[in-house]
């Protein structure tokens, strides 16, 4: 009996490795896109097989956006990267793995889906959180990941800064607001999903600063009777970009598939998958269809307020930047 079980187990272990697709792509992505790409990959593989007759298998790797970029720079063989923000892809491009004009190669800043930053609060919103100012009230604990490693955290930070800047008109006041905000943060996780788990499962904190899609997912998984989403009247337009890693895709001979894969985002099916997973679609028709799923939020862009990612990264998140200054105190 024991022997039979062992034989079956061994058979299972080795049989499953026999399957191999014609083409295999590696997509290195950020933390909260796991469910999104699980669905998108299936749809693309079916569409690609129908069109070309070839089977394609897409492997995924997820983690904090900054550390994923680092891994690709260190040699993780990604055919495509789909990260949380343009700066992380710029960092890979700076090492010569991607052409520097990558953001012009696909429409809409190479960001086929967008999101924004919202608040996830516990049922009944016991601390009465409605807008950014409520986050720095006494006794409110805020959960957000570490901006040094997490893309989502950088969007959180910039959204808070942008809000304070628009309200007060003074960069000094904005800095003071963000500094106050981080005094309310008891723990910095390395990635967005880690922060969600801290807030949702470990029950730490009163409000989670989260990607809108991540907030919806937590609500779907744990029920609307446990968490509520609060959309602030003003927030940032988060554009998570995608691109082919030229050096790797060319070496593996995967460029054509990799490009087809990313272009699939801009089709009706692709946009619908984004919307179903609570990412804001770019296509105006699909956006209209899913209008009711997303709160009306006035959105500012990083280019408007911060003059683009390179500048924002250097001023705020680089070694000795504003985040380092305020977090030390």
């Amino acid at each position: 009996m024991v022997r039979r079980i062992l034989v079956v187990a061994a058979g299972l272990l080795w049989a499953s490795s026999a399957f191999a697709a014609d083409v295999s792509l590696l997509n290195v992505s950020y933390d909260p896109t796991r469910e999104l790409y699980a669905e998108f990959n299936k749809a693309f593989a079916a569409a690609y097989q129908k069109e070309t007759g070839k089977s394609v298998e897409i492997k995924q790797s997820h983690g904090g956006s900054g550390s994923q970029a680092r891994a690709v720079i260190d040699g993780l063989q990604a055919d495509v990267v789909t990260l949380a923000l343009a700066y992380d892809i710029d960092a890979i491009a700076a090492k010569g793995l991607i052409a520097t004009d990558w953001q012009k190669r696909l429409p809409l800043n190479a960001s086929p889906y967008t999101s924004t930053i919202v608040f996830l609060v516990r049922k009944g919103n016991p601390k009465g959180i409605k807008d950014w100012d409520d986050l720095i009230k006494p006794g409110v604990e805020v959960i957000t990941p570490n901006p040094k490693t997490s893309g989502g955290a950088r969007w959180n930070y910039l959204a808070a800064w942008g809000y304070a800047l628009k309200k007060s008109g003074s960069p000094d006041k904005a800095k003071q607001f963000v500094a106050d905000l981080f005094k309310h943060v008891p723990v910095l996780d390395t990635g967005a999903r880690g922060s969600t788990v801290t807030f949702v499962e470990r029950g730490v904190g009163d409000v989670l600063l989260a990607w809108e899609n991540e907030a919806f997912l937590a609500q779907r998984e744990f029920g609307k009777d446990k968490f509520e989403i609060v959309a602030p009247p003003l927030s940032i337009l988060a554009e998570p970009p995608v691109t082919v890693v030229d050096k790797v895709a060319d070496k593996k001979g995967n460029r054509a598939v990799a490009e087809a894969y990313l272009k699939y985002w801009y089709t009706r099916e692709g946009q619908e998958i984004a919307a179903r997973n609570s990412y804001r679609p770019r296509d105006s028709e699909i956006a209209k269809e899913y209008e009711k799923s997303f709160a009306k939020v006035e959105l500012f862009t990083i280019d408007d307020v911060f003059g683009g990612w390179t500048k924002a990264q250097k001023e705020h998140f680089a070694e000795g930047g504003i985040f380092d200054q305020i977090y030390k105190n």
Binding site: L26, K59, Q60, S61, H62, G63, A71, L76
Partner: peptide
């Protein structure tokens, strides 16, 4: 082992 492997794994699913 978790820590050391996590750093060098690349977290490729199924691989």
């Amino acid at each position: 082992e978790f820590g050391a492997v996590s750093v060098v794994s690349g977290h490729i699913r199924g691989e």
